[in-house]
């Protein structure tokens, strides 16, 4: 494992910690898209089907369990917790799941490495992860001011994508037969979605202003 991959995993973990911090300490999920969180839960559930059958490393198994556990508990908090759910911005979080889920599933049926249930679902999870942030970005755009924790949450998620991209470039040059066109394709789309957000994030940071995305 290289340093870029590790940094990517840690920023991914940081994004989840920031989100849980918001939910646990402020008891608020304002500005967080439940649609995106549900899509992430679906992403992890379909990607980590091999968690108990294929052993890679203790690190790998533990991280998978953390991502699965946290993503489903975040969804639970936003839907069921007696105070957290009241802060959910339901009226602005209107993006439809199936607009993303259906095309990703159809694409995974056609573009995959092998036509098996596990391989198709794994490919589906990559395609879905690439676009799962869209409802969150839409919600950010509709929010007048984005609070710090929400802004940092999306920032860490974007940083995770950036580091994974560098990791693939690194692996491409250091490992033989490292051909991963599905990962590359989905990863580039996913990282590109953050470019706009990063521009406004750094601009607000530089000018010491509250983050606000233009509608």
């Amino acid at each position: 494992m290289n340093i870029f991959r590790l940094t990517g995993d840690l920023t991914h973990l940081m994004s989840i910690i920031v989100l849980l911090l918001k939910i646990h300490t402020i008891k608020s999920c304002a500005g967080i898209s439940l649609k995106t969180q549900e899509l992430y839960a679906l992403v992890f559930a379909t990607r980590y089907l091999d968690i108990f059958t294929t052993y890679i490393s203790l690190y790998n198994t533990v991280m998978k369990l953390i991502f699965l556990g946290t993503s489903f508990s975040i969804v639970w908090y936003m839907r069921r917790h007696k105070t957290v759910r009241l802060s959910y911005d339901k009226n602005n979080d209107t993006f439809r799941h199936y607009f993303l889920v259906l095309p990703c599933f159809l694409l995974a049926l056609v573009l995959n490495n092998r036509f098996t249930v596990r391989e198709v679902l794994w490919t589906f999870s990559l395609y879905l992860e690439a676009v799962a942030i869209i409802p969150q970005l839409v919600l950010l755009q509709r929010s007048k001011n984005v609070d710090n924790l929400t802004g940092n949450y999306v920032f860490f998620l974007g940083a995770y994508r950036g580091f994974y991209l560098i990791n693939w470039i690194y692996r491409y040059f250091t490992e033989n037969h490292y051909r991963r066109w599905i990962t590359w394709m989905a990863g580039i789309v996913q990282t590109a979605l953050y470019v706009d957000f990063f521009y406004y994030y750094f601009k607000s940071w530089k000018n010491n202003e509250k983050l606000k995305l233009p509608a």
């Binding site: 790998n60 991502f67 490495n113």
Partner: peptide, 10 residues
């Protein structure tokens, strides 16, 4: 399994 991608990432 030549075309199968390595699944060591998260």
């Amino acid at each position: 399994a030549d075309t199968e991608e390595t699944k060591d990432e998260l």
